[in-house]
Design a protein around this nucleic acid. Structure first.
Length: 431
RNA sequence: GCGGGCGUAGCCAAGAGGUUAAGGCAGUGGAUUGUGGUUCCACCACUCGUGGGUUCGAGUCCCAUCGUCCGCCCCA
């Protein structure tokens, strides 16, 4: 048809849906501010090797999902596939560590991964993330998990599952990996083809396979928790104890392996029902080695990212009704009345009211129909008579009652007006 | 990247090779030129995602392509 559509895996978020986005953003902002996290904004693209080094060359994200291109200066640039690498880069580059102590940061924004789109999986998607840098204390792990749980709760997400695992130090992980490969090698021929493939590349993933036979084999595989050194074990025990103290339910999942190389110790995921294969709405963990890996001072850190699309899909499924409220709808007829109405609308807005003005110029009957549909609490009416004596009709759309008052009184008595609006609104929403 | 399902109006859809493409919701106009939510009437797809092909004839069959959905891989 010759019409140019949006790119695959991207989409427009229309006003009706934006309401949900704003709701999530506002809730997150407030909550993160309460928890003393400060917002960080980093560029949407970075040098490609930041991600290669930070996320790990062997990962799928780096290996096959990045939006990478050369710019006009022949630099290799990548649209960020996740937020942590950029946040850590900014932390190092701006020497935030020099401020001493713990840096609590959060971010919100678009991420990009070249994948096959599905519901809850876009090529451009959005994450809210937190990074708590500079503390090895298990309380930091518990804190970030608690914040994620609180956010889900504040948003009215009814049910979720928190899965928890520890990957130990990178040494623990290496020892475990060797043991696992050793074990799985015996059954190499019985594994599903995908898993055979992963044996060298990413053996920990095999534990998570959906293939029945592989699952059977994985059941008897060595457990990572048996390979943690004393410190790792203590850390993990403490995290679990703190979560219990916080009354946050979790289940241990030794198969939980996060896909990015930088994770150490605590790894966790929040899963929701009703999102099909995209159940994971929040994933995170500790990444004690990443800051040094990227050239900064040795700095332990823990964080997570929430997938906003997935979260919002769920909120929409729950039919949580959110509307942008409107105080007044203004109708007018006749040149002079229309001019006065425009001024009146502006004055009402200056008083803090939300006002929509009808621009159709059609009959009052039509304009009222639109007033009704707009969801406004009251309708401001200006016709020729009102224009002549500088009055206005104010009609309360729910009760149908109508009053006449001077235009200047409508503005001067804004406090009474506000109270009446509030009363009408709450009476209506409670009935 | 692999396997499968589906694309008819803004939305939900009927249609299964044969003249003019049901219906509903929404929208617009009117009944009602100063008063909404109900009702009634009218209008609202030269065309079935797009491009080819088969056929006397294609929304319907075939191929390609794009998009979307489901699963895998992977991830938020």
């Amino acid at each position: 048809m010759g019409f140019i559509q949006v790119s695959r895996g991207t989409r427009d978020i229309l006003p009706e849906e934006v309401i949900y986005w704003q709701h999530v953003e506002a809730t997150a902002r407030e909550l993160l501010q309460q928890a003393a996290y400060r917002e960080l904004r980093t560029p949407i693209f970075e040098q490609t090797n930041l991600f290669e080094r930070g996320i790990g060359e062997a990962t799928d994200v780096v290996g096959k999902e990045m939006y990478t291109f050369n710019d006009r200066g022949d630099r290799s640039i990548t649209l960020r596939p996740e937020g942590t690498a950029g946040a850590v880069r900014a932390y190092i580059e701006n020497k935030l560590y020099a401020q001493g102590g713990v840096q609590r940061l959060w971010y919100i924004g678009s991420m990009f991964r070249y994948e096959r789109p599905q519901t809850g999986r876009q090529r451009q998607f959005h994450q809210i993330g937190v990074e708590c840098l500079g503390s090895i204390d298990p309380r930091a792990d518990a804190e970030v998990i608690a914040i994620a749980a609180q956010l889900l709760q504040s948003l009215g997400v009814p049910e979720w599952t928190l899965s928890l695992n520890s990957l130990g130090t990178s040494e623990d992980r290496q020892r475990y990996r060797d043991a696992l490969v050793n074990y799985l090698d015996q059954y190499k021929d019985d594994l599903d083809p995908d898993s055979q493939d992963r044996l060298q590349r990413n053996p920990l993933r095999i534990l998570d396979s959906k293939d029945a036979k592989t699952q059977e084999i994985a059941k008897a595989a060595p457990n990572i928790l048996g390979y943690l050194d004393t410190d790792s074990q203590q850390h993990f025990d403490r995290v679990q104890q703190l979560l219990t103290d916080l009354d946050i339910a979790y289940k241990l999942n030794p198969c939980l392996v996060r896909g990015l190389d930088y994770y150490t110790h605590t790894a966790f995921e929040f899963e929701l029902d009703g999102l099909g294969a995209q159940a994971t709405v929040c994933g995170g963990g500790r990444y004690d080695g990443l800051v040094t890996e990227l050239g900064g001072p040795d700095t332990p850190a823990v964080g997570w990212a929430i997938g906003m699309e997935r979260l919002i899909l769920l909120l929409q499924n729950a039919e949580l009704t959110l509307n942008q409220s409107l105080d007044f709808y203004c109708v007018a007829r006749g040149l002079e009345a229309e001019a006065q109405a425009l001024i009146l609308c502006q004055n009402l807005r200056k008083q803090g009211f939300s006002v929509e003005m009808d621009l159709s110029g059609s009959t009052f009957s039509k304009q009222f129909k639109r007033a009704d549909r707009s969801g406004a609490i009251a309708c401001v009416i200006l016709g020729e008579t009102e224009a002549c004596d500088r009055t206005v009709q104010l009609k309360w759309l729910i009760s149908g009652e109508q009053e006449s008052l001077l235009q200047k009184d409508l503005i001067n008595q804004s406090q009474q007006l506000r109270e009446k609006l509030m009363a009408t609104k709450s009476a209506n929403s409670s009935s």
